[in-house]
Design a protein around this nucleic acid. Structure first.
Lengths: 217, 217
DNA sequence: CTTTCGATAGAACAAAGGTTTTATGTCATC
DNA sequence: GATGACATAAAACCTTTGTTCTATCGAAAG
């Protein structure tokens, strides 16, 4: 059994950045890209850390090739070049949502991600994902364990599926959004279920649902 | 309307090579990679042709960046190398399923396809997809218009989500499969719904559900 | 207190890779 | 035969980018 030491903070950050950069740009970052993004003073430090990461099996470096960094998965296989979005937290009735740092501040140390279709970020830009806990979204045809991919937004047009935060109830939910006069109708995706009505002031749109990912098996 | 002249052979070759190289290596080729692969005597010739291709909208060059070639599709959007699966038909209660030509003969050029995550074919091999018509699958958390990605199979292990054909009822459905003695329990994904029981002989497994795709907006 | 080791720095070097410059060849057109 | 767009060459040039060298620092080990 290979001992798994805890990875230094900076190293983890580097790994995350490579992932993000590759998703965003379709090509791996250079040593200096990493240096800049992670506030590292010298390229040699980046090189040092990359060597460590390579030895630990997290990546592969093609020598004598520019941008030769290749991320590996846990089986040592090259990671797919499909874009990935971060799972920034979970959503469940009654639980507060995680803070949305759409800008992706220096925070976000967890690099739990899901692979998505390349056309999603192309069409919608920056995205994030939430894990659904529990079956409270069952009326939106979303099951426990499903992952919801969301585009950040503060408002919505009628008929769009949104992540809505109900202030009074202190509850997050996924519903279709309809503004009707001074109140909002939140319609479950499931046509056999009844809508929720509440005052416009009570509804805070957090984002629009782009897709749902469900794992079988 | 922009006149579309026929592209010189060499240029077509270059374009093809870039595509192939990127698929194989996960990073775009350098000017010199192209030069070598296409038997071109000088990098300047490659550069010249790349400029032509860029002007014609086939690709994008990020200046002052190594390996900055980015292929574009007909809409001028970055091309995706994500795999696609064919939508071979639709599934709805009471309707026969389309014939499964798992081998996917040379026929069927006309079919719609959906883009999927690269890890799906990597894990499951050859796949196909079905459009869900109507809300009869609502108990499986699958809505009208959803697309179900399926791996061909003739049998299933307990707990797997399958495309099942019920002989007597002449009905296709999506359920979790459980063989219990001489009968089969078909359990909806939705835990609030009741299972269906029927004789093992009445159930014909057509495939295992790998994922569900739902479009919002 | 010294040694050792992981981690960080700064600077320079060297190879890779994008771009430019200048020259040549081809072919259709007038 | 001259003209000009189009394509090809060879070689140099210079920025980007990977790599190396040497030095420092703190914490754990002896």
């Amino acid at each position: 059994m290979v001992a798994k030491k805890k990875m230094p903070e900076r190293r983890r950050r580097i790994l995350g950045f490579i992932q993000e950069f590759y998703s965003d740009n379709g090509i791996p970052p250079t040593v200096r890209d990493i240096q800049q993004a992670c506030n590292i003073s010298s390229t040699s430090v980046v090189d040092y850390n990359l060597r460590q990461l390579e030895e630990a099996g997290y990546l592969n470096r093609r020598r004598e090739v520019a941008r030769g960094i290749e991320l590996l998965d846990r089986d040592g296989e090259p990671v797919s070049n499909a874009p990935r979005v971060q799972i920034v937290g979970s959503i469940a009735a009654g639980q507060p949502l995680p803070v949305f740092s759409a800008e992706g501040g220096a925070a976000s140390e967890e690099f739990d991600t899901v692979e998505i279709s390349p056309d999603l970020p192309r069409r919608h830009g920056k995205l994030f994902a939430l894990t659904v806990k529990g079956t409270s979204m069952i009326d939106a045809l979303i099951d426990d364990g499903d992952v919801v991919v969301v585009k950040p937004a503060q408002d919505a047009s009628n008929g769009e599926m949104v992540v809505a935060w109900l202030r009074d109830e202190e509850e997050a939910t996924l519903k279709k959004f309809y503004l009707e006069g001074d109140r909002v109708r939140l319609q479950p995706a499931n046509s056999t279920m009844q809508p929720i009505f509440c005052s416009a002031g009570n509804v805070e749109v957090k984002g629009k649902v782009v897709t749902v990912l469900r794992k079988y098996g």
